[in-house]
Structures are given as structure tokens and as C-alpha cells.
């Protein structure tokens, strides 16, 4: 199905609002939307909410023979799905340009930055290594899928635990979680992707564009950084290159806190998983996230404008 077209009036309004340093949801230029992290009952499952954008990542592992060129390194595999659930414009089973772009960026973000120790995934050199598979599913698309994807993927990888293995002679035993505690992956650092969008040939710059902002932007710059202020990758499409350094310590902290929380509840034997986090997701219980709207503009003229006109509703009688 085709996507809803963007009307001229929306485009004009958005650009005008950006010129006045206003955004649709009341954010400032460098404000991120609210990020929410939730972990599933199983290890390695994570749902990330970035405003209304929602992405789920699931990590799984498998014993495979390694690549011949790298006999003692584990394999990282990324799989992204753009399901029609996220947006009617997405089609299942077809690799669109966006999907390829996201997949490539995620690979650059997590594999090429060497944030995961792949050598520790080797079981028997040249014969058996762990393949870590990251499946990322888009559940709702409201712009900035890349940032949500990178957060979900790294959080799920940090949460994931693989089964322990023992090697005796040429016999490899995979122990179940009951026999031996599963082992977490060794992660050196957490690369987080930050998207910056440009408007009016780079005059205006916004962090974390929402869906409608993405549709009117001129260019996009995706920077992957970790909390040590190291840049892992930069990708720009369209527009003019501009650099804006931003420390991503806050997001990393958030992931660490969420992981810490999850670990604690698991230790205490409490309930965990999505079921616990979404107890109120019933039809009659709907919530809207708070948006703080900037009221500092020239708003305080309510008194003198009251006589101009009242609310006009266009709804003619039915014929």
C-alpha cells in the first residue's frame, strides 16, 4: 500500500515552524524523544520506544563452522524486518532501499566498531564458533528508525546470555541453563547512533527527527558514538556535512540502568518480561505521553484576541 502523501500545507507549516525553532511535539532542536527500554522474559529480547517509534530486537545464538578467513572468530549476523505493522508503506519480504540502508548502518554501527569481542565466541578453532543473530523488528514507525534500532540492538546484545559449553577432547557439550549458568557476551563499549536532520540546505539542524520531519528534510547525518566520545561511524545522505559533537553518555546510562533493574528483579525472583511491564495495555486504558510545550513565545495575548473570531468548524449539513 502506498504511504499517505504529504500535503503542501504540512510541508509549509513544518518548515515555517522549524524556522521559528518550534517542533511538532514541543521539543527543542537538540531534544530527544522519550526513550523507554523493556526487556522480555527471555535473555536477549528488548523493546525500545523512542516516542511513538517502537522497535523490538531479539538475539539468538547457534553453533556454526566459522569463516575460513577467520577461523577463531564468532559471527555476528543482523536481520532487519520492516513489517507492514509499523507503517502501511512497508511491504513484507521485499528489500526496500530503506531496509538496505538501515541494515548496512546497523552493521557498521555494531560489527565494524568491534564493540563485541568475537574471539570469545570461538569454541573450537576452525570448527565451531557461536553465531550471534540479531533480529530487529520495527513495530511502529514514527521516524528515526535507525537510532531506535541501534539502541534496541545493543541493549538486546548486552542483555543476552549464551549457553555455556565444555570441550573435552573433540567432544563439545552445550550445557542447559539448569546445568551451568549462561554467559553474557563481552561488550567493550556501546555504540549509539544519533541522527541529525538538515533543513533548508543545512541552515537548520534537528536531532531525532519524527516521521513528518523526516519527510521534509533535505539531508540526514547519522553519527555513531560511544560514551568515551569516540566516533564509530558517520554516514550522511543528502544535504551538507555539518558536525555536531554530542556525548551519548545519557543513553548508555539509561541502558545500563535498565539492565541493572532487570538483573535485580531476576535475582529477587520477581516477575520479569513484557507481561510484567505492560499490565495496563488494555483497550480502555490509553495514555498519551506528556509533551512539555514551550509556552514562552508570544502567547500571552489571549485577552485581546478574544473578539476576533470564534472557533469555526467546517461541517456543512449533509446534502
Amino acid at each position: 500500500m502506498k504511504d499517505t502523501p504529504l500535503s503542501n500545507c504540512e510541508r509549509d507549516f513544518l518548515l515555517k515552524a522549524i524556522e521559528e525553532k518550534k517542533r511538532l511535539d514541543g521539543r527543542q532542536t537538540y531534544d530527544y524523544r522519550n526513550i523507554k527500554l523493556r526487556f522480555g522474559a527471555d535473555y536477549g529480547c528488548c523493546i525500545v520506544d523512542l516516542g511513538k517509534t517502537r522497535v523490538m530486537a531479539q538475539v539468538s545464538c547457534e553453533l556454526v563452522t566459522p569463516k575460513e578467513s577467520r577461523p577463531n572468530e564468532g559471527i555476528l549476523f543482523f536481520n532487519l524486518e520492516l513489517s507492514p505493522m509499523a507503517s502501511p508503506a512497508f511491504e513484507l519480504g521485499r528489500s526496500s532501499e530503506l531496509l538496505v540502508k538501515l541494515n548496512r548502518q546497523l552493521e557498521r554501527c555494531l560489527r565494524n566498531s568491534h564493540c563485541i569481542d568475537t574471539e570469545s565466541l570461538c569454541v573450537v578453532s576452525g570448527e565451531k564458533v557461536w553465531q550471534i543473530r540479531v533480529d530487529v523488528h520495527m513495530l511502529n514507525h514514527d521516524g528515526n528508525l535507525m537510532d531506535a534500532t541501534s539502541i534496541a540492538a545493543i541493549a538486546a546484545l548486552s542483555h543476552f546470555k549464551r549457553p555455556d559449553v565444555g570441550v573435552q577432547g573433540d567432544q563439545v557439550t552445550v550445557y542447559s541453563p539448569e546445568e551451568r549458568n549462561p554467559i553474557a557476551l563481552s561488550i567493550y563499549h556501546m555504540p549509539i547512533c544519533v541522527s541529525l536532520s538538515f533543513f533548508q540546505q543545512g541552515t537548520y539542524l534537528l536531532v531525532d527527527p519524527c516521521e513528518r520531519e523526516e519527510r521534509v528534510m533535505d539531508g540526514l547525518l547519522m553519527i555513531t558514538m560511544n560514551k568515551h566520545r569516540e566516533i564509530c561511524s558517520i554516514q550522511s545522505s543528502g544535504g551538507i556535512m555539518l558536525l555536531k559533537e554530542q556525548a551519548m553518555t545519557e543513553i548508555t546510562d539509561l541502558i545500563m540502568r535498565a539492565l541493572e533493574n532487570d538483573k535485580k528483579t531476576r535475582k529477587e525472583g520477581g516477575k520479569c518480561g513484557f507481561a510484567e511491564y505492560m499490565p495496563l495495555a488494555r483497550i480502555t486504558v490509553n495514555t498519551t505521553d506528556d509533551t512539555s510545550v514551550d509556552m514562552t513565545g508570544p502567547v500571552v495575548v489571549i485577552s485581546d484576541s478574544e473578539d476576533e473570531e470564534d472557533v469555526v468548524i467546517l461541517h456543512p449539513e449533509t446534502l
Binding site: F13, A17, D294, P298, V299
Partner: peptide, 9 residues
């Protein structure tokens, strides 16, 4: 509304 700000609100 009268301004962009008010429209957004």
C-alpha cells in the same frame, strides 16, 4: 491559529 506557536498548542 494566530501564530505557529498557538497552532501547535
Amino acid at each position: 491559529a494566530a501564530t505557529v506557536q498557538k497552532t501547535l498548542i
